[in-house]
Simulated scan of single mutants.
Amino acid sequence: MSHTDMNSKAIFFDVDDTLYDHLTPFRQAVWNWVGEQDKFPFEEGYQRLRYHSDMLSLKMGGAGTMGTGEQVEWMRRERFKLTLAEFGIPLTDEEAGLVQSAYLDCQFRIEMFPGARELLTRLQEEGHVVGLITNGAGEHQRKKIEAMDLHRLLPEERLFISGEAGWDKPDPRLFQLVNEKTGTSPEDSLYIGDSWRNDVVGALGAGWSVVWFNPRGAAAESEHQPHHVVRGYDELSRLLMPPVPMREQGRS
């Protein structure tokens, strides 16, 4: 994407694993259950947790239906049971509940990736329409947004949560809703996210441009082609906010 491509862009970000590292709360939650911590593949375990979360959520009607209640609590315990069982660590319902409680607590004590807040600020200062599109229950995701103080940085009308909107990524209707509510068009819209299925496939299906945020070097899961792939915020910042050439800096 060239600098001229960035004129009048709607630029929206995913939240989990795009603005902050979701691996950190997972590591903290399962630390006491995995035996020799230095030998446990935390990244692989976390990816399996995400897989089971997505699949169980889909069976229950999607992330937009997620909130509270016995069924939701069962799902949250079950994803940890299924995940750790793959690594030879069986959990009872009670133990899975303890892991889930620790995970939930850690999720609301999070910090953004270095450079993320600065980039969001600069993009807004440049006049771009900047916001968030995230899957999950409204109350749950808003706690994360507040934990990172994003509700003070971004306008309320640009915070889109699937549990409030009625559609989950990768459903293109969620992205279409964002365009409708913000007065933007797909051809001038860019999405940055880490999930291949939800973010890359979802945004491409809605006609948006896509930057795949892939700090762990995950493999593509289909033939879809994101417009760019970045490993971190230094690279993303250079892509979205390229430096002004020296000859232009000197012009009056």
Rank of each mutant, 00 (worst) to 15 (best):
G115K: 06
P90Q: 08
L82V: 03
F108P: 00
G115F: 06
E125I: 10
N135L: 02
E125Y: 14
T121E: 09
R79W: 08
A96D: 09
L82M: 13
G138T: 07
V130E: 03
E118Q: 12
H140M: 04
I89V: 10
S101M: 14
I110F: 04
K81Y: 04
Q107M: 15
R142G: 00
A85C: 03
S101L: 14
E95F: 03
L98P: 01
Q124D: 07
G131L: 06
V129R: 14
I110Y: 08
Q100T: 05
F80A: 04
L132G: 01
L104Q: 14
T121R: 08
T83N: 04
Y103R: 03
A85Y: 09
E86D: 15
H140D: 08
Y103F: 15
L104S: 13
T92I: 11
E111N: 09
T134H: 01
K143R: 15
G131H: 03
L82F: 08
E78I: 00
F80Y: 12
P90L: 09
R142Q: 10
A102R: 10
Q107G: 02
G136Y: 02
D93R: 15
I89T: 06
P90K: 11
G136F: 02
A102H: 12
G115I: 03
E125D: 14
T121Q: 12
I133P: 00
R77N: 01
F87T: 11
D105P: 04
E86Y: 04
T83Q: 07
F80E: 12
E111R: 05
R109W: 06
F80I: 05
D93V: 14
N135M: 01
A85H: 13
R79Q: 09
R109T: 11
F87I: 12
E111D: 12
L98H: 13
D105C: 11
F87S: 05
R122L: 15
T92L: 07
E95K: 09
G97C: 12
Q141D: 00
E139R: 05
G131C: 03
R117E: 15
H128S: 07
I133Y: 03
G136M: 03
H128Y: 12
E139F: 07
E86T: 03
G97A: 15
E125M: 15
T121V: 06
V99P: 01
R142P: 00
Y103W: 13
I110D: 04
E126F: 15
R117W: 09
L120W: 11
R117S: 10
E78V: 00
G88Q: 07
H140P: 00
Q107W: 09
F87M: 07
K143V: 01
N135I: 00
E95A: 11
S101V: 08
I89Y: 07
E86N: 03
V129W: 15
E95V: 08
A116V: 06
Q141K: 00
L91D: 10
T83W: 07
F87D: 06
E94T: 13
R117G: 14
A96I: 09
L91R: 08
R122G: 12
Q100M: 07
M112R: 09
V130L: 02
A102K: 11
R109L: 05
Q141C: 00
F80H: 10
A102M: 08
Q124M: 15
G97H: 13
P90C: 05
E118P: 08
